[in-house]
């Protein structure tokens, strides 16, 4: 069956360029273009591309030169489609550009991407969350542990006992309680920051009030730090494991506030230092829950000077 050639359909290729100096020089051959002296749209045809040059005045009063390049595409189509191509525009479209798509109703939109993938994560990855971008570029520094995450997202922010490493990073001595409050607590009196009641008044530096902190200090003597615990670890598991070596006074397992899952480290205070030593000897390097435990002396949390 013979399939006729369609009359050319026009596809706009690009539009909306501002007047460049070189273009203006070209146009100056004819006359100077002013807002009330806009030249008629000009069309040049070369081969299968049609170039429309027109001028318009934009909202700011500037004259814009609009160059539209159309490529004529010839394709073989069924008779019925070819016939419909010759239909006259009707209704509101009567006023449209009779030769092709009208700028007022047909716009070429910005590029969009469709990447087909079986990987769900990649789909989520396309969502450009500005906050996510920030954190990957390590533009943020945690005030507590100096990691490249927000302070509010710090894994150590809720821990009661402070983690030794981070104390070394913090040049200023901070109490364990101070760390728990997000590192904003008790510092020297000169800074004008909040001072806990126990340290107010005429106490000498280093002298502490009768507070919860001093009791913890004693605990430090027989306390071991356990790291590399699995997420599923419970406090009772630790009591069972560490109770073998002697009477335990206190077990502190760092847990996530919301999920209540272990954060991977814990402190265990024994009644006697000997028990702690035994535990370290026996359990450091011990395989537990598919992970290898690291058990060491808890460095005493630094106290106020």
């Amino acid at each position: 069956m013979p399939i006729p050639q369609t009359p050319a359909s026009a596809t706009p290729q690009g539009a909306g360029q501002s007047v460049s100096w070189a273009d203006q020089m070209d146009d100056l051959e004819a006359s100077v273009i002013t807002a009330d002296n806009l030249p008629e749209p000009r069309e040049t045809v070369s081969g299968d591309t049609r170039t429309m040059v027109s001028y318009r005045v934009d909202e700011g009063g500037k004259i814009k030169k609009v160059t539209q390049v159309y490529k004529e595409v010839r394709q073989q189509v069924p008779k019925a489609i070819a016939k419909r191509r010759t239909w006259k525009k009707f209704g509101d479209a009567e006023q449209d550009n009779p030769k092709g798509p009208d700028q007022a109703t047909t716009v070429i939109a910005d590029d969009v991407y469709l990447t087909l993938t079986t990987n769900r994560e990649q789909l989520e990855h396309h969502d450009d969350d500005p906050l996510k971008k920030l954190s990957t570029k390590s533009m943020v520094t945690c005030r507590i542990c100096k990691g490249d995450h927000w302070t509010t997202k710090c894994p150590y922010k809720d821990t009661l006992g402070s983690v030794p490493e981070m104390e070394e990073v913090n040049s200023k001595p901070v109490t364990a309680a101070g760390v728990a409050a997000g590192g904003t607590g008790a510092v020297g009196p000169a800074t004008g920051k909040y001072i806990p009641p126990s340290q107010r008044g005429d106490k000498k530096p280093g002298e502490r009030g009768e507070s919860f902190g001093s009791r913890m200090q004693q605990d430090d003597q027989a306390t071991v730090r356990v790291t590399n615990l699995s997420e599923e670890t419970q406090e009772s598991d630790l009591r069972e494991l560490f109770g073998y070596f002697g009477q335990i006074k206190r077990v502190f397992l760092a847990k996530d506030k919301i999920t209540q899952q272990s954060k991977g480290f814990a402190f265990i205070s024994y009644e006697l230092k000997d028990y702690a030593q035994k535990a370290i000897d026996a359990l450091d390097g011990y395989g537990y829950d598919h992970l290898i435990l690291k058990v060491e002396w808890a460095k005493p949390s630094k106290v106020q000077h």
């Binding site: 026009a10 706009p12 798509p101």
Partner: peptide, 17 residues
């Protein structure tokens, strides 16, 4: 106003007023 378009180039063919 229902509208009909050429799907190949987005040209508006007409509106049914």
């Amino acid at each position: 106003k229902p509208t009909v378009w050429y799907s190949s180039n987005g040209e508006r063919l007409g509106t049914f007023n």
